[in-house]
């Protein structure tokens, strides 16, 4: 069983510290929701773990199955089992989804090993059917001119094809209407069972997503740290009382 251990993690953008001593362990097959108001470091956490060059990890460690990923390039991190589902996926004109996904699958094969194209397309079409994605979709350029819902489905499709050990899902619900949200959530839930189910860090601002992707754990990120953890009822409590409630509750502790 794979696991991601985040230990005393400090992340800066330039000189500005954003995440300040974060600890979290994610087991394969479990969904950890990370909630918190804007600007508390949720997206920073996901992108830094994936290796985005704009973020500097100043202290702490991130280990996948006991092995630190911090010295790895983003592509190595991905091949070792991490996946980032972007909040705002890049549009890449001229590069088709089929070609980029193929390159990603090919990159995971041993040198000299050729991709089994028949098996690849069979799997791709099965995953697309599951996500209610039209077959024509794969010849389109990655995210180019996609609606919000299409972009997020495209992210989930890639996740389904690449079968990561740990998926970092950054605000997967943003920009989705309720129908699109359902489809995306179904796509994620379909990957939650079975021996290769990834561990998921599900970053969200709203409780709404958690009605559809029910988390095993909920953590509240505040000012660069996890200040409260619980089960799904914590999300409901936050939804009912708002982040201000938490602010007041935390006030004596942080004063």
């Amino acid at each position: 069983m794979s696991q991601l251990e985040i230990k005393d993690l400090h992340i800066s953008i330039g000189d500005k510290p954003i995440v300040r001593g974060l600890n979290l362990t994610i087991q394969q097959g479990k969904v950890h929701a990370i909630m918190g108001p804007n600007g508390t470091g949720k997206s920073t956490l996901a992108k830094a773990i994936a290796g985005h060059p704009d973020y500097t990890i100043t202290e702490g460690d991130v280990r996948l199955d006991g092995k630190s990923v911090l010295a790895m390039q983003p592509d190595e991190r991905a091949r070792s089992g991490l996946f980032l589902a972007f909040q705002y996926p890049s549009e890449i004109p001229g590069v088709s989804i089929a070609n980029s996904l193929r390159a990603a699958v090919q990159a995971r094969l041993a040198e000299g090993e050729e991709l089994d194209a028949t098996a690849y397309y069979k799997k791709l079409y099965a995953k697309m059917d599951l996500l209610k994605i039209d077959r024509k979709f794969t010849s389109r350029a990655v995210n180019d001119g996609f609606s919000g819902g299409e972009k997020k489905r495209c992210e989930i499709l890639q996740m389904a094809m690449l079968e990561p050990k740990i998926a970092l899902m950054d605000e997967t619900d943003s920009g989705l209407d309720i129908d699109a949200l359902r489809i995306v959530a179904d796509g994620v839930n379909a990957q939650r069972s079975g021996p290769s189910a990834p561990g998921i860090m599900l970053i969200t601002h709203y409780q709404r997503l958690l009605d559809y992707i029910v988390p095993d754990y909920v953590h509240v990120l505040w000012d660069g740290r996890i200040v409260k953890s619980g089960d799904k009822s914590l999300a409901l409590e936050l939804e009912a009382k708002g982040y201000d409630w938490l602010k007041q509750e935390l006030a004596p502790a942080t004063a």
Binding site: D75, A78, I92, A103, A104
Partner: peptide
């Protein structure tokens, strides 16, 4: 764009090649 492709496990040189083909497409 380059980070996006690399975050899928595509090596930097291959990601660049894909982006050049994207530019040529």
């Amino acid at each position: 764009q380059e980070f996006y492709l690399e975050s899928r496990g595509i090596r930097a040189a291959q990601a660049q090649e894909l982006l050049v083909f994207g530019f040529f497409e």
